[in-house]
C-alpha cells in the first residue's frame, strides 16, 4: 500500500495554488489535511499526477468572530482548533458538538475544515452541519472570487460546484436568531466510525414558543447532505408537540432522504434510524431553543 508517483508543489500563496490547479486541471489534487485523500492514494484508488499542498500558505487557518455574532473560519483550520476554540463553543454550539464525532483524535489534529467540506463526503459531520447552519463558502480561482451557500455547494457523492482550478478558502456561518437551539444525533457502529445515519436540527422558536424556522439535515442518507424542507415546512408555525415533531420526522425519513445499502446497514434500517434520530434531534433542538437544556 504505497502511493503512485506524483509531482509535488507547496505554493506559498492562494494565487499560486490556483494557478497550479489551472495549469494541471483534473490531473491535480489539492492536499489540505490529507486525512481522506492520502488513504485513497495509499490504496491506489486515487493516483493524481500532481499534488498541490496548501499547508505552506500562511493565513488560511483562522477562527474569527463574524459580524452580528457569526463566525468566520479559514479553510485550513484544523479540526482540533475548531474543537477547542472558545468562540466556536460560544457562537456555534452545533459545530462545537460535531467536532469530537469527526474521525479520531489524531485525524482531527491534521484534518482541516476546508478539506472535509471540499471532499463532500455525505457521511461527514461538517458537510451536514455547514448546511444546517446555513453557512456560505468563499471560493477562489484565477478568475476571481465567489461566495456559494452551503446548501448549493454539494451536488453529489464527493462532488461540489468547485471548478478544477478553484479553492475553498473560507467558511462563514451566520449567527442564529434568538430562541434558537441545535442538535446533532448519530448512530455509528463504533464511536468514531462513519455514522450509519445522523440528523442535525436547528430550530428557532417564536415568542409564543411555536416553530418559526426549522432546518433538518441528514448525513449518510443520500449522495449529499440531505435537507428536509417539507418536514421543516410542516413544523412552521406549529407548537413543537411530540406529535408534531414525530410527524415531521416521519415526513423527512419517508420522503426526503435517499439512503443506500451497504454492509453495515440496509437502506431500510437507515430510513428507520433517520426517523428515530430526526425526532430526537428535533426534540433536543426545541428544548434548547426554549432554554430548557
Amino acid at each position: 500500500m504505497k502511493p503512485a508517483p506524483f509531482e509535488y508543489f507547496a505554493p506559498p500563496s492562494v494565487e499560486q495554488a490556483v494557478a497550479l490547479l489551472a495549469e494541471h486541471g483534473y490531473e491535480a489534487k489539492v492536499l489540505a489535511g490529507g486525512q481522506s485523500l492520502v488513504p485513497m492514494m495509499n490504496f491506489r484508488l486515487v493516483q493524481p499526477s500532481v499534488l498541490v499542498d496548501l499547508n505552506s500558505i500562511p493565513d488560511l487557518g483562522f477562527i474569527q468572530p463574524g459580524k452580528d455574532g457569526g463566525l468566520r473560519l479559514g479553510a485550513l483550520t484544523r479540526h482540533h482548533q475548531v474543537e477547542v476554540d472558545p468562540i466556536v463553543a460560544e457562537r456555534m454550539p452545533l459545530l462545537h458538538d460535531a467536532m469530537p464525532k469527526i474521525g479520531y483524535p489524531q485525524i482531527r489534529r491534521r484534518g482541516t475544515l476546508g478539506g472535509s467540506l471540499a471532499h463532500a463526503d455525505p457521511s461527514a459531520e461538517l458537510v451536514t452541519v455547514s448546511v444546517a447552519l446555513d453557512g456560505r463558502f468563499r471560493l477562489r480561482s484565477p478568475r476571481g472570487e465567489r461566495w456559494v451557500p452551503a446548501k448549493d455547494f454539494f451536488v453529489g457523492l464527493f462532488t461540489t460546484v468547485l471548478d478544477p482550478d478553484e479553492l475553498l478558502v473560507e467558511v462563514e456561518l451566520p449567527a442564529l436568531p434568538a430562541r434558537s437551539g441545535c442538535a446533532l444525533m448519530e448512530v455509528a457502529r463504533r464511536s468514531h466510525d462513519f455514522a450509519l445515519v445522523g440528523a442535525a436540527a436547528v430550530v428557532t422558536l417564536d415568542e409564543r414558543g411555536a416553530c418559526q424556522q426549522v432546518r433538518l439535515v441528514f448525513l449518510s442518507a443520500g449522495d449529499r447532505p440531505m435537507q428536509a424542507p417539507r418536514a421543516a415546512e410542516a413544523l412552521r408555525g406549529q407548537a413543537p408537540t411530540p406529535d408534531a415533531l414525530r410527524a415531521a420526522a416521519e415526513i423527512a425519513a419517508s420522503d426526503e432522504i435517499d439512503p443506500s445499502s451497504d454492509i453495515h446497514a440496509t437502506a431500510d434500517f437507515r430510513r428507520h434510524l433517520a426517523k428515530v434520530l430526526a425526532l430526537r434531534a428535533l426534540e433536543q433542538a426545541c428544548r434548547r431553543a426554549a432554554g430548557k437544556d
Binding site: L45, S260, D262, I263, H264
Partner: peptide, 12 residues
C-alpha cells in the same frame, strides 16, 4: 475497500 459507496455510485 469501496463498498460503502458502491450502491450510491451505481444508482447515480
Amino acid at each position: 475497500v469501496g463498498q460503502r459507496l458502491f450502491d450510491s455510485v451505481s444508482r447515480g
